[in-house]
């Protein structure tokens, strides 16, 4: 289950983070009836509920949007506002085919963030983040769902919201539902 909520676009990164946690706590109460569970962080900073290890979650925030996802197995979620992309980041993180896809796209910025959010969602699901070498995790976007040949035991979902944000999810759960919370 993926909860998305629009937020004020003028918030600072820290405030976005707080808004994402608010959404997390509200959503977990609705989904599981758990009120304000304690959160701890793992080795790489991935948060988890120590008293509810059966519940896996992940949050993401960007300008104007907060997202949190729940699953019964590891899950990674990333949301990004579509904006100017950085060729330098692309060179560092994207595979050759991904770079070609971006550069040949009519909408390079959107294509960049489609790949970027997939990589970040994968990194968050694995718990490694995107600072390890992500080039081997090359994504293909031509099918119904994004596919990463290097990761066969995970399923990826992606949504473009209001033509403004991209949200990507990496999980084992084949059934993911996106829910948009009222503002």
């Amino acid at each position: 289950m993926i909860f998305c909520k629009r937020i004020n676009e003028d918030l600072s990164v820290r405030e976005e983070h707080e808004a994402a946690h608010e959404l997390l706590f509200r959503s977990i109460e609705k989904l599981y009836g758990i009120s304000s569970p304690r959160i701890e962080k793992g080795e790489h900073g991935k948060p988890f509920f120590p008293e509810h290890p059966e519940i896996f979650f992940n949050i993401s925030h960007c300008r104007g949007l907060v997202v949190c996802g729940f699953s019964d197995s590891e899950i990674g979620v990333d949301a990004e506002l579509i904006r100017d992309h950085s060729p330098r980041v692309m060179d560092r993180v994207f595979s050759g085919s991904e770079r070609e896809t971006v550069l040949s796209s009519e909408n390079r910025n959107e294509m960049f963030f489609r790949f970027w959010t997939l990589k970040e969602a994968l990194g968050k699901c694995l718990g490694t983040g995107v600072f390890c070498d992500m080039k081997p995790y090359s994504f293909e976007l031509s099918g119904e769902r994004p596919v990463c040949a290097a990761v066969k035991d995970k399923i990826f979902f992606q949504k473009i919201i209001y033509e403004k944000w991209v949200v990507s999810v990496c999980t084992h759960d084949p059934k993911i539902e996106f829910i948009f919370e009222d503002q």
Binding site: I82, N107, K164
Partner: peptide, 8 residues
């Protein structure tokens, strides 16, 4: 892949 809206 809708039209992009580049936001600075």
């Amino acid at each position: 892949a809708p039209a992009a809206e580049v936001q600075e």
